[in-house]
């Protein structure tokens, strides 16, 4: 992994939320919903988009414009998809965390891979 390509905690949450959504449901507001319901994190929509943009610039997600609907005031959705690099980065982050948990003495031994 290149320097600066590590995942911040919030970015990890956004990526995981994205993975939990169907392809045509993976956009800002739904990600916000998942974060609030599952992770108990309140984030404004621009904050979510900021994270998504950072992830996109690192190549972890890609985006495309979806359908515009009347209830959206005729504005198109911006749909996101997690790329393979994103999944790898998530995995890397999880491993790093586990190691650090062990180092910190809060975990018994290396987890099963």
């Amino acid at each position: 992994m290149r320097r600066g390509d590590h995942l911040a905690a919030f970015e990890q949450l956004v990526l995981l939320a994205l993975l939990s959504l169907e392809e045509d449901e993976a956009y800002g507001m739904n990600i916000r919903h998942v974060l609030r319901e599952q992770a108990r994190r309140e984030a404004s929509v621009p904050t979510v988009y900021s994270a998504l943009e950072r992830l996109e610039s690192k190549g972890f997600v890609s985006s495309c414009l979806g359908q515009a609907t009347p209830e959206r005031g005729g504005r198109a959705k911006k749909l996101f998809r997690v790329e393979a690099a994103g999944v790898r980065a998530l995995d890397e982050a999880r491993k790093t965390l586990e190691v650090m948990w062990q180092v910190g003495g809060l975990m018994g031994g290396p987890s099963e891979r």
Partner: peptide, 20 residues
């Protein structure tokens, strides 16, 4: 306030949730 490229997706998301 928003950058041009964010306007559609963000305002759209907010409008959709508002309607719901």
């Amino acid at each position: 306030l928003l950058p041009k490229r964010d306007r559609g997706p963000i305002l759209g998301d907010l409008a959709e949730e508002f309607t719901r």
